[in-house]
């Protein structure tokens, strides 16, 4: 309802000047009352959508799939859902800190970092290839046939995914540290691509001599863009780490938390949801288990990121 639409007929229907003069204050009060009522009605109608952050940790540039998933969640929850894609982890972290997001699918680093600061709670953990874990892959260009270990990349150009990426930034530095090297001077040059997929591309083109990426992203890309992953070679794989989870911002109320958790976990039993999971290349979403991320936190502390 537009408040001005209510006021204007009231003024136009004035019978004569005398009536207007006599009832001046009455009309003013009536107008203000109508304005207040309509503002109230408008406020009641606007339902705040659920805002979910998507980070480059996963499929953030598979736009069509994201639209389908959003519509699915909207139908199941019965409330509007908004997906908020950001090009770097930093932006998603900031949005969560400022409570601009209700939920977010983040890398393990932001989860551990934000959970440490009591900003988020674990909502669900995706189950990938039967396990709620993923790894980091060390990749080099396919033309590089010599590199057998990470330490052979000394003095080369290395691509990091993101400041707040676990596999793409914490793991390589942790490994160097464990080997007694100084991550700051080990490489001739490092640069950030702000995404695992772009690290793969940078290595494929030969812009970087090496990079460390999320196994889920590499495996997914190997299925949809084989021509890119074919131009890279996996040198080594790390041990398993807790899969990038979906988190809830701490101020999200219990009902909303429970509803979202239920809808996500039940996706595997719903034909539409199962189809989406298949496209997301996940088995299902599982109940949260914060202990899976302990190692991540330890490694972050080791390199000074926590």
């Amino acid at each position: 309802m537009n408040p001005s639409c209510n006021r204007i007929p009231a003024f136009q229907s004035l019978p004569n000047r005398d009536l207007w003069k006599r009832g001046k204050s009455f009309w003013l009060w009536l107008g203000l009352f109508l304005l207040f009522m309509s503002a109230q009605a408008g406020a009641q109608q606007v339902v705040q959508p659920i805002r979910m952050g998507i980070t480059p940790a996963i499929v953030h540039d598979q736009y069509e799939l994201l639209i389908e998933w959003r519509v699915y969640l909207q139908e199941k929850l019965g409330t509007p859902v908004e997906f908020v894609s950001r090009d770097s982890y930093r932006e998603t972290i900031d949005l969560l800190k400022r409570k601009k997001l209700d939920f977010a699918w983040v890398s393990s680093f932001p989860y551990v970092y934000l959970e440490h600061n009591r900003r988020v709670r674990l909502l669900v953990t995706p189950v990938y290839q039967g396990r709620p874990y993923y790894r980091a892959y060390l990749i080099v260009p396919a033309t590089d046939l010599d590199t057998r270990s990470f330490l052979q990349l000394k003095g080369k150009v290395f691509a990091y995914a993101d400041f707040y990426s676990f596999t793409g930034y914490v793991v390589p530095r942790y490994q160097l540290q464990q080997a007694g090297e100084d991550p700051a001077n080990f490489f001739r040059k490092t640069f950030f691509t702000w995404g695992h997929r772009k690290v793969i591309e940078a290595v494929a083109h030969g812009l970087a001599d090496g990079g460390m990426v999320d196994s889920f992203v590499w495996d997914t890309l190997a299925q949809v863009r084989k021509n890119i992953t074919d131009r890279t070679r996996i040198v080594s794989k790390t041990q398993e780490f807790g899969f990038p989870p979906i988190v809830a911002q701490t101020s999200v109320d219990k009902d909303k938390f429970a509803a979202m958790q239920r809808v996500l976990i039940e996706m595997e039993h719903d034909p539409e949801g199962a189809k989406l999971l298949k496209q997301l290349r996940l088995d299902r979403f599982g109940l949260p288990a914060p202990e899976r991320y302990l190692e991540v936190g330890q490694m972050m502390q080791a390199v000074g990121d926590l």
Partner: peptide, 12 residues
């Protein structure tokens, strides 16, 4: 700084 064909003209 960068080239369109890094394998021909590598960074640095």
């Amino acid at each position: 700084v960068a080239s369109a064909h890094p394998k021909v003209a590598p960074v640095l």
